[in-house]
Nucleic acid binder design. Sequence first.
DNA 1: TTGTTTCCCATCTGATCCCATGTTATCCCA
DNA 2: TGGGATAACATGGGATCAGATGGGAAACAA
Lengths: 153, 153
Amino acid sequence: MFLSTTINGVDAKGRVSVPADFRAVVGGGAFDGIIVWPSFDGTYLEGGGQALLERYQSLIEDMDPYDDARIAFERAIFGAARPLSFDANGRVTLPRDFIDHAGLDGKATFVGLGSRFEIWSPDVYEAHKANAQSFARDNKRALKLGPRPGGAS
Amino acid sequence: MFLSTTINGVDAKGRVSVPADFRAVVGGGAFDGIIVWPSFDGTYLEGGGQALLERYQSLIEDMDPYDDARIAFERAIFGAARPLSFDANGRVTLPRDFIDHAGLDGKATFVGLGSRFEIWSPDVYEAHKANAQSFARDNKRALKLGPRPGGAS
DNA sequence: TTGTTTCCCATCTGATCCCATGTTATCCCA
DNA sequence: TGGGATAACATGGGATCAGATGGGAAACAA
């Protein structure tokens, strides 16, 4: 699971260290790196491991071939996604247009969201975090822990 | 189950011994440690074992992918949660911002709540405990016993 | 060549590991 | 039932290592 929030530096070459925890999550697969695309929903990047994209693909294949949502998904995610492989130190190089889309300026905030993660400009993220927290507080009753599946703790 | 209340010291490095009872609860899983995040509801920390986070994840994954509430929960919980693994003596190191959020100053109160636990600054907790007790007294009729899932307990 | 990208090496900081020690609870036996 | 021995738990400090970051050389493309 991708967890926690980390701020890492983006150098002049567009290189950024992927948090070691995140590298551990995607490790083991055939492709040694992450897959990233610009969010179609805001000024940030979304990403995950190869497994995430494969899950998306199987979701999409269940949709109707000419479903508008399917076409949008295909273009917005698969069309825009780029595989970024790790260098020897666990860094990736972000393409220039990704940096521009997210407004990254020397720093990048990695936000773990369980099965995927997001990359933000730190100040932009701070503003959104406050919203997310108050929204979560107002809606916390929606998060009910039902009966435990297994039974054990 | 996480039970009872314990006060342990937090040293200059942010290390704190997790009560042995609590360690026994999370023991046995793949990840040898606890997962902790700042409450979005107050000046304390929430935590549990890996199993707790997986339950939250399955709850969240039942929501629509781009539901606002889902994204808010993901950022407020997964984005804030950090896995803290035990050292050889059963301690974890709390990140600096967690210590600040809970206002911990040399001491931390672990409060067991069944499937999860909370970490408070001892004096802050004392003040809230009185409130919680009177609240429970006022609302005791809301505590209904449903049918037992497994059978015996 | 010229600019870009990839790879490699050096360095620094902070987290993790390891060992030593005090303290409390538990057990055993008289 | 009391006292001593023992083990489990909690705590402190120092050493070691992994992660993050910066710069430069080599390979590649235009």
